[in-house]
Amino acid sequence: MGAAARFILRRKGGKGWHWTDIVTWVWLTGGLIIMFGPAVWLGFSSFKTPAALAEFPPSILPYVTSQATVEGYDKPLQLFNAKMPDGSTRVLAEVRRIGIMSQMVDPKAPGEIVRININDRQPVRTLSFATSNYTEPFVHFDFLRYLWNSVFVTVTATLITLVVNSMAAFALSKYEFRGRSAAMLIILATLMVPLSVIMVPLYSIISSLGLFNSLWGVILPTVATPTGVFILRQYMLTIPDELIDAARMDKASEWQIYWRIVLPLTAPALAVLAIFSVVWRWNDFLWPLIVLSRRELYTLQVGLSIYSGELNVQWHFILAMTVVTMIPVVLVFIFLQRFITTGIAGTGLK
């Protein structure tokens, strides 16, 4: 703790508190709470039962009220910490409530009924994780299906992106040919063509190709990313041309040069693109929403949004599935954060 405190409280120069130190401290602590807090809250909430979710004020950790089966009563009764008239506290089970009075029994001695004012009793609560929030949607809803669709779209699109983009980047960085600058210009110019501008005609093209309601209709329009070509080309430009010449003298075919020389040397940039692509495709929402109209084809994002938009939102399931949807991205974040941040800082891309 001492080290942590010293680290948190470290100040500029070490001589007293400059106002910038205070701002820094407030900003960082506030940032920590605001940026992580919601996700943490989501995580805790996802383990709560529907009853606990409906509570106000809410508790942070997932509690359930304890119940006990008491002799002579068919249904399990809810347990309370009751303040007895003599000031002592006992654990009692509630039989029924009449007005502000509660009729309670001792589970161990169910014969005697005790009347307690409802303000003098607190429910007995124990920490309990409602894991059924996670298991049930996979059984009752199609979430396993959605999960599989999302994984399929993400992996396939990323693999195709890597191959197709790296081939194009290779051509654009290591060959001199007519139309090269034109191709580069087109790619750069469309770097900023967003889906929202072309969704109507793109939809018509997808349907004429018979890709409406097909995961390939989600995948194909996303794979020829100008961003990917751009990142890879910039990186390949740093590979010396003499290496290519050397390989040509070594009787390597152009395909071999691409596969055995250029691609291994582009590995760092490919890794960055792969990470980006996984995050992009996993998070894609609008386009799958347009292309996929059959439930069994939904990706996680679409499935989640559809279920959360229903009239009777089953928040306990939605929250759990949101956590599931978040997990891959959080893993990417934890393990590959450095890659991504340097990638963004270097290229200004997202």
């Binding site: 940026m35 996700a39 994002q301 959360s308 978040m326 954060q337």
Partner: peptide, 17 residues
């Protein structure tokens, strides 16, 4: 990383949170 964390979250997740 603290400030960067939400950037990677999907918009749907952000909306739901």
């Amino acid at each position: 990383a603290v400030f960067f964390f939400p950037v990677l979250l999907s918009p749907v997740v952000v909306g739901l949170i």
